[in-house]
Nucleic acid binder design. Structure first.
Lengths: 145, 145
DNA sequence: GCAAATTACTTAGCCTGCTAACTTAACCTT
DNA sequence: AAGGTTAAGTTAGCAGGCTAAGTAATTTGC
């Protein structure tokens, strides 16, 4: 009994890691069409919702550490998708703005999202989707602290 | 209607990415206790099951690309956890073996796994665990090809 | 039996992502 | 107003992970 449960937990852990890695890989392939890497779309998404956000705001929204954001912004700046401007009222703060090229990616990337979601959730009922969502939230919550 | 479904899919996609990133992070913290990085435990695990596996076998079992494996093995070799030996019958093949230090990590790392699984699945019923497993398998399968 | 194709692995060069340690600017606090 | 603390970013250095291109050994196919 105990043995079976332990085995199942192991399988879930491994399955979870395996599935999320595969999702990421599959997604990376799609994003290559628009010359973007996984994670960068997330940053752009935040800017589509709030252009001119500060780097601290962005790293909090994205759930990543400040150095990760610094690097990513630098790269997107090198690609010509965003620009950085120092905040007028607080010289410590840097705000990130979309360029025209960065804004133009919104629709193509949303299209990639839609396709990816459709592919990933194919054949899964509405009820199961709700359950999956609930379980993910619970796991997410279990990992707090 | 359509709008709601689209939003939910977006949330699942984002939630999934968020939760798996958090799992990885939380897990990385635990593994730091034994001076190991996420992914390296997976390689060691394969060797505990099959010491002396070839690199191609390992990269297939782990679902990663050969260069990823080359790098990881190199690092574990530098740490003194594994050694590499050329195969006698086929000079192209490299086999990976555990050192004593590498074997010794089996129990501590299994303990970390158990704790992590317990924490992650806390409060989730047996039925829900089965559902989660089924959904993960389905998503995994959807992403094939 | 020898050239061509395949296999196993490596190298180089990107990327995300992390921690630790640092800089600079702003804010308290006495 | 000087000195310490906090806050926002950066730099350096290390991981995993990828693709593209290269090397060397083994098969295959004529």
């Amino acid at each position: 009994m105990q043995r079976i449960e332990t085995m199942m937990e192991e399988e879930i852990r491994i399955l979870f890691a395996k599935t999320s890695a595969k999702m990421r890989k599959d997604y990376a392939d799609s994003l290559r069409e628009v010359n973007i890497y996984v994670g960068q779309d997330h940053l752009l998404w935040q800017l589509w919702r709030k252009d001119g956000a500060t780097q601290t705001e962005l790293s909090e929204l994205m759930g990543c550490e400040p150095p990760t954001l610094t690097n990513m912004v630098k790269k997107l700046e090198a690609y010509g998708l965003v620009t950085r401007k120092k905040d007028a009222s607080d010289a410590r703060v840097t705000r990130v703005f979309l360029t025209e090229k960065g804004s133009a990616l919104e629709y193509p990337i949303e299209e990639i999202w839609r396709n990816h979601q459709k592919k990933m959730l194919n054949g899964i009922s509405e009820e199961d989707r709700l359950t999956l969502k609930r379980l993910l939230l619970q796991i997410d919550n279990n990992l707090k602290i």
